[in-house]
Amino acid sequence: MGRFFDHGDLRLVVLKLIADKPSHGYELIKAIETAAGGAYTPSPGVVYPTLTLLEELGYVVASEAGGGKKLYTITPEGEAFLVSNEQPVRSLFERMAEAASTSAAFSPQILRARENLKTALRLKLHGGQLTAEQIAGVAKALDDAAATIETL
């Protein structure tokens, strides 16, 4: 799969999400992932520079929200920019909704199984000292699961 967004598209998506609800960077990453049905999850290395650019352009302002987090809020300039790009923004969100409708990433069965695996792994890894044999067994089980999934 190629790039999910073209140059400048993520800026519009992030700005629209902030217009809908002032957010932290992590919340924006999760909102985009959800809107795209898991078909795309932007990395922090893409989202945070986008937020910095939007701030430099005067489209958002960041305020300290405690714990080193910044809360981003849209400015009147950002709102005007969104209005002037209403059709491209609508098209981007339609494309994300279409991707979400065909994505299996958030299917209940896969979510349940993924959470079961994460829980079992967390309990095993944090339940005490593992022997070399146990570590090898966990690694083999994970490798086997990955190989099985790849062949589906």
Rank of each mutant, 00 (worst) to 15 (best):
M1D: 11
G2R: 15
G2P: 08
R3C: 11
F5S: 05
D6R: 14
D6K: 14
H7E: 13
G8S: 06
G8V: 04
G8L: 01
V13M: 01
V14R: 02
V14Q: 03
L15S: 07
K16W: 03
K16D: 10
K16I: 00
L17R: 09
I18N: 00
I18H: 00
A19T: 07
D20M: 09
K21S: 11
S23I: 02
G25H: 01
Y26R: 14
L28V: 09
L28Y: 04
I29D: 00
I29H: 05
K30N: 11
K30I: 13
A31L: 01
I32D: 00
T34C: 01
G37S: 10
G37A: 10
G37L: 08
G38E: 04
G38P: 06
A39Q: 07
A39W: 02
A39R: 07
Y40I: 02
P42R: 00
P44H: 10
P44C: 06
P44I: 08
G45W: 06
G45C: 02
G45V: 03
V46D: 06
P49G: 02
L51K: 00
T52L: 08
T52P: 06
L54I: 02
E56W: 07
L57G: 05
G58L: 08
G58W: 06
G58C: 06
Y59C: 02
Y59M: 05
Y59I: 03
V60H: 00
S63M: 12
S63E: 15
S63H: 11
E64I: 04
A65V: 00
G66T: 06
G67F: 06
G68I: 03
K69L: 07
K70L: 11
L71P: 01
L71V: 06
T75W: 04
E77A: 15
G78T: 02
G78M: 01
L82F: 04
V83E: 14
S84L: 13
S84T: 13
S84C: 08
V89A: 04
R90V: 12
S91F: 08
S91R: 13
S91D: 15
F93M: 12
F93I: 10
M96W: 03
A97M: 03
A99R: 10
T102F: 11
S103H: 09
S103Y: 06
S103L: 12
A104R: 15
A104L: 14
A104D: 14
A105V: 10
A105S: 12
A105M: 10
P108T: 09
P108A: 14
P108R: 12
Q109P: 07
Q109E: 15
I110Q: 11
L111T: 12
R112I: 05
E115C: 06
N116C: 11
N116Q: 15
K118D: 14
T119R: 14
A120T: 13
H126K: 13
H126I: 09
G127T: 05
G127Q: 06
L130E: 07
T131M: 05
T131A: 06
T131N: 05
T131R: 05
T131W: 07
E133W: 09
E133L: 15
Q134N: 03
Q134I: 02
I135A: 13
I135D: 09
A136G: 05
A136N: 06
A136F: 08
G137V: 03
V138T: 15
V138Q: 07
V138R: 03
A139W: 04
A139D: 13
A139I: 14
K140L: 15
A141C: 07
D143Y: 10
A146F: 10
A147M: 08
T151C: 09
T151F: 08
L152G: 10
